[in-house]
Simulated assay, not measured.
Amino acid sequence: MRDDLPRLTVGQGPPLVVLLFTPQAATPAGLARWSAMRMLRPFAERFTVHLLNRPPGLAHDTTMADLAALYAGGFEGPARVLGLSTGGSLAQQLAADRPDLVERLVLAGTASTLGPIGRRAQRAYIERARQGRRPSPALAGLLTPSPLARAFLSGLLWLSDGGADHADAATMLNAEDGFDLSGRLADIKAPTLLIHGEKDVVYPLELARRTAAGIPGARLTVYRGRSHSATFTDRRFAPDALAFLT
């Protein structure tokens, strides 16, 4: 098992590996840790949850397959896997490349490739980060369709970026920009549930439907009226994921 992968481990029970995108290549701290713990708490009641993160200092041309190979070294053995958003892209790559490590798979707010709106926003994030500018305002449009709310969120996101190095975050999003598992979905052998918001603009619902159809035996649960981020905060999310994982 690799010891250079940042990880947050909580709970007790069989292992559950959680994969998600974080701005920093580090074990979550401060507000990021509070947010992660809030999401993980229901799962930690049933599992030993390992929130794995990427090692810092990755090459700019790192691919999703490269990341999957790195994360595979963080597994102690076969485990259930929960992948959210960009972490869901990584979870698909891992499940296709290393089916021996994934017993059961829940994907949430993700698909086998990005949609056009999500791709534009993430490319803007990457460009800003590599120019040394605060990048997170580029993602505001993914969180709300309201121009007024978008302007407000852009300011908050700009403030949240202060003092941080976003090179590693840009590397992971760049890996997702080149990610398209559409032709390899049949390589995912684990029983799979995909949970998706009807109004997700990062990965449109039609892409989620195609993804679920391409994974043998996969199930798709759609939350009507929910956006990308609202999928993960929906009160049904943890119970639905836990029911499938257990």
Rank of each mutant, 00 (worst) to 15 (best):
173 L>P: 06
27 T>A: 06
34 W>K: 13
148 L>G: 06
33 R>D: 08
51 L>D: 01
67 L>E: 00
71 Y>E: 07
164 A>M: 15
38 R>P: 04
246 T>I: 10
224 R>T: 14
166 H>G: 06
132 G>V: 03
117 I>N: 09
11 G>D: 05
157 L>P: 14
105 L>S: 06
128 R>E: 10
29 A>M: 13
98 R>E: 02
215 I>D: 01
195 I>N: 07
52 L>D: 00
110 T>G: 04
5 L>W: 00
218 A>W: 02
23 P>Y: 10
218 A>F: 01
124 A>I: 03
48 T>R: 14
1 M>E: 11
231 T>G: 01
17 V>K: 01
93 Q>Y: 03
174 N>R: 13
69 A>M: 05
138 A>N: 09
66 D>P: 00
147 P>A: 01
228 H>F: 03
195 I>M: 07
76 E>A: 12
66 D>Y: 00
181 L>W: 03
151 A>E: 15
120 R>L: 13
179 F>N: 09
11 G>V: 10
43 F>T: 11
114 L>M: 09
211 T>E: 05
44 A>T: 09
128 R>F: 04
15 P>V: 09
151 A>M: 14
86 T>F: 07
72 A>E: 03
76 E>D: 13
30 G>F: 05
191 P>Y: 10
84 L>S: 00
173 L>V: 14
158 W>Y: 13
24 Q>E: 14
37 M>Q: 15
93 Q>N: 10
125 Y>H: 13
92 Q>G: 04
196 H>T: 12
25 A>I: 00
170 A>V: 02
99 P>M: 14
92 Q>M: 01
183 G>D: 12
17 V>S: 04
4 D>F: 01
243 A>H: 08
213 A>L: 08
212 A>I: 04
44 A>F: 05
159 L>M: 15
112 S>W: 02
38 R>N: 13
90 L>D: 06
2 R>D: 11
170 A>W: 07
134 R>P: 12
57 G>S: 02
200 D>P: 08
169 A>S: 10
92 Q>T: 02
9 T>F: 11
6 P>H: 02
